[in-house]
């Protein structure tokens, strides 16, 4: 009896060694995908599974900081993550990302010029472009005197009498402070306390005119007419426009914050090869377009021809070329600047 069980144990051990070895040779057909929630169409995953046989498990997060905390702690075994450009440098410098050398992937040829060699990841060693968008403001042209607002942050920070009490700002300190900095023409990552004071004063003056600060329910808030104007993302505005076609999106001329999200592979990824297959697959124009059509944000792949006509007619998704000079890519601020921002935000709300 004893001998038998021992033999069993040994063969079990051998078997597990064998599987461990073979696992090195070919990864199990699975992939752990950690993405912003509702930021990827579920049916596209089904298509990927069908074409490659790799089964994807998708989980969602809601902020770059959560992603950062999990990666810094280590042990969160995800294969593909979607960091914004504003934390790419942190991830790279902390040695949390695997070098995947994206230009060697076959579908890299379809990546649009401006997305090939970004400052946050020179040579695209660690990442591939996913979606990008802007944080401007939206308004309902049917409820605005004259039916049109000037394309300036002035409309938002110093609202006309008719709109006072009928507008909302996002409840995210960086978004609000970015917009205020652009309006005042100061650096978003300023380390100068005097400039921070000016930002705070502008925001304090605006606060009584705001109905609320909120980053939730942004589509409905515009579509239901709860507010006439609000600080908003372009994709969210576009979805609201589908429900109510008088909603317009503004790229303010003082500058509009631009975010760009990227695919990357953590160093601790259990299935790095599958991750590369997935990232390569996502750079195919038809797949990139499928995402944009479902999620209502533009992508960094040459796929404009495949964009759904309902988005094509909207400035919010299909940005007119003339506005390109207004885009201000979000920056990664120093600790000192972050502290100032935190102080502005606490004092504003305190």
């Amino acid at each position: 009896m004893k001998v038998k069980s021992m033999r069993l144990a040994i063969s079990g051990l051998a078997l597990s060694c064998f599987t461990a070895f073979s696992a090195h040779a070919a990864e199990p057909k699975e992939l752990f995908f950690y993405n912003w929630t509702d930021y990827y169409p579920v049916d596209l995953l089904a298509k990927f599974e069908k074409e490659t046989g790799i089964k994807v498990t998708m989980d969602g997060y809601d902020s770059n900081e959560t992603l950062l905390a999990k990666l810094q702690a280590g042990g969160a075994a995800y294969d593909v993550i979607v960091p914004s450009q504003s934390i790419m440098q942190t991830l790279i410098k902390q040695d949390l990302l695997l070098e995947i050398d994206t230009p060697t992937l076959s579908n890299f040829q379809y990546v649009k010029g401006p997305f090939r060699d970004p400052a946050f990841d020179p040579g695209r060693k660690f990442s591939a472009p996913y979606l990008w968008g802007t944080t401007g403001f939206s308004y309902d042209s049917a409820r605005v005197p004259g039916g049109k607002l000037d394309d300036s942050w002035k409309e938002f920070f110093e609202p006309r009498k008719e709109l006072q009490g009928q507008l909302a700002a996002l409840d995210t300190s960086s978004s609000v402070i970015n917009a205020a900095s652009h309006y005042l023409n100061v650096d978003e990552c300023t380390e100068n306390p005097q400039e921070a004071k000016r930002i705070l004063e502008l925001l304090q003056k605006q606060k009584p005119f705001l109905k609320m600060y909120s980053s939730d329910n942004t589509v409905d808030r515009m579509a239901s007419g709860e507010v006439i104007m609000m600080q908003n993302w372009n994709g969210s505005t576009a979805r609201a426009t589908l429900q109510k076609n008088t909603i317009k999106y503004v790229y303010p001329r003082e500058g509009v914050a631009m975010f760009q999200d990227n695919f990357a592979v953590p160093k601790s990824a259990p299935h790095p090869d599958n991750a590369k297959v997935f990232i390569d697959w996502m750079m195919k124009p038809e797949n990139a377009a499928a995402v944009s059509n479902a999620i209502a944000y533009a992508n960094g792949i040459q796929s404009d021809g495949l964009l759904d006509p309902k988005w094509k007619v909207m400035d919010a998704i299909n940005m007119p070329e003339a506005y390109a000079s207004r885009l201000r890519p979000e920056k990664e601020c120093s600790n000192k600047a972050r502290e100032l921002q935190d102080r502005i935000w606490s004092k504003l709300k305190g």
Partner: peptide, 9 residues
Amino acid sequence: YIFSAIKAG
């Protein structure tokens, strides 16, 4: 799931 999906509404 709900908490992070609620950004859009």
